[in-house]
Each structure stands twice: as structure tokens, then as C-alpha cells.
Write a protein that binds this DNA or RNA. Structure first.
Lengths: 110, 110
DNA sequence: CAACGCGTTCACGACTCGTTTACAGCGGCG
DNA sequence: CGCCGCTGTAAACGAGTCGTGAACGCGTTG
């Protein structure tokens, strides 16, 4: 099933490598210090590269339940992810907002 | 699982050398006085350098059984190891905590 | 028996994480 | 222009995790 893929598959985006099975995301081989949720969210985004994922879809995938109305956790986590990714990979803009819909992960930063 | 390797392989981290086969860990050739558990834990960590090892994984490898709920032995041993390593190698931070996940050994202290 | 070494458990303060809240900025629309 | 819904992000908060000195249990040694 899809779950296993999520746990064993690895993902790349430039110098970034995501290893969900090792609870790690590496840039040039050095681990970023991401929290569990941050890594889950990044993994979910990266596993659907170039696809616009709706907020509901993303939330459901990471939190395992539909978001409550006016829950802003997703935004906060996207923000924190962007901040950490931006520190490590200033040249790439990996996460793109699609207002009114959701977010999209672009491995080449475009 | 890694038993044979764990017994014969040696590991280095700066001035630290770990010799599981001799039940010894040396800094500049001088042995640290580690207890058995401390050395086992250090060896287990060092044999998976740069990898985040989950608490369960570590515990299972060193104690040979899964940890009981609220068993804090691992934390205490990590603390004692850090203390002894810190005395001998003040310039390195070898063991890193990944909260909610486990620990990571970094030979270059980063 | 007393002293010791080692592994484990306990206690409590400090820190981290996930969540919520608050507020600022932006874009569309009347 | 003012209003409104959506997003970005800093800060606050409570729950849970971790760090660590101390106490404890127990086998070993003198």
C-alpha cells in the first residue's frame, strides 16, 4: 500500500535528500533539525512533487484526520519548514502557495 | 544483527578510538573508564554514525530487549557517556538528541 | 560484615514540540 | 476607498520529553 512507500522511499530536490525511514532530511549529507511533524509534512509534499495539494489533502495525510475549521497548524508548519529550508538552501524556493487551494512542492525550486 | 561487526570493527571520532573487541575506548591512547553498558551504548551509536537511531532501536541493540514504558535507563546512560566523553574531549559534541525520536552520533562533533 | 562498583529507578527542573492565538500584509470586490 | 477572506509568522501556552544528581538494590570483593 501507499504507506510503505512513504516510509521507505527517498526523495531528492537539489542538495536536499529526504529519508523518512531514518527520520531525517539531509542537505549535503548533513541532517536538518526538523521536528517529526515538519518532516512528515515535507515528506508528504515531496512525495507529490509538482502537484498542487489541497490543504485538506495535506492535513489529512500528515495529521491523519481532517482539519478543524480555523485550524492554522498547517500554515504554521509550512512557514517553519520554509524557514529551515531557506536557511539550508537559500537558492531554492521549494514550497509554493496556491491561494485558496493549497501548496505545491517543486524539487527544482521553480 | 550487527554482533560480529560490533565485536571486531573499530571506530574513530577525532582523538577517540573505540575498540569493542578489547572492551575499551581510548582517547590519545589512554583508556576511558567506561562501564560495560556505557561502552556497548557508545559502540552502538558509533557504528551508525550520522544516523538518527530511535530510542527503541538503541535500547533493543544494547539491552537485547524492547524498553519498558517509562524506562529512563537509556537517558541516564547517554548522560553518563556525555559526561565522560566531555571530560576527555571537551571540544566535541558527539551525541546529539533528536527529541521525540532518539540520538545521533556525529564523529566530527557537529 | 562493610565497602564498592554497576545498573536501575526516582525526582524535579529545564527544554522542546505541537497547537493556538494575535496581528500584519495582500489581493479582490463593491 | 473600506471591507473581507486568506496567508505569513511571531509569540504564548500546555503537555510531554529529556538531563541529571541522588537514592536504591544487589552481587562482588576485601
Amino acid at each position: 500500500m501507499y504507506e510503505d512507500k512513504g516510509r521507505t522511499q527517498r526523495y531528492r530536490a537539489g542538495r536536499l535528500e529526504i529519508r523518512p525511514d531514518e527520520h531525517a532530511a539531509l542537505v549535503d549529507g548533513r541532517p536538518l533539525s526538523l521536528t517529526l511533524r515538519e518532516l512528515q509534512l515535507l515528506t508528504e509534499l515531496a512525495s507529490h512533487a509538482e502537484r498542487i495539494m489541497s490543504r485538506e489533502e495535506l492535513y489529512e495525510a500528515v495529521w491523519g484526520r481532517p482539519p478543524r475549521r480555523s485550524d492554522r497548524s498547517l500554515d504554521v508548519y509550512v512557514s517553519r519548514l520554509r524557514s529551515k529550508l531557506g536557511d539550508a538552501l537559500p537558492e531554492l524556493t521549494l514550497i509554493h502557495t496556491h491561494t485558496g487551494i493549497g501548496y505545491r512542492f517543486s524539487p527544482d525550486g521553480a
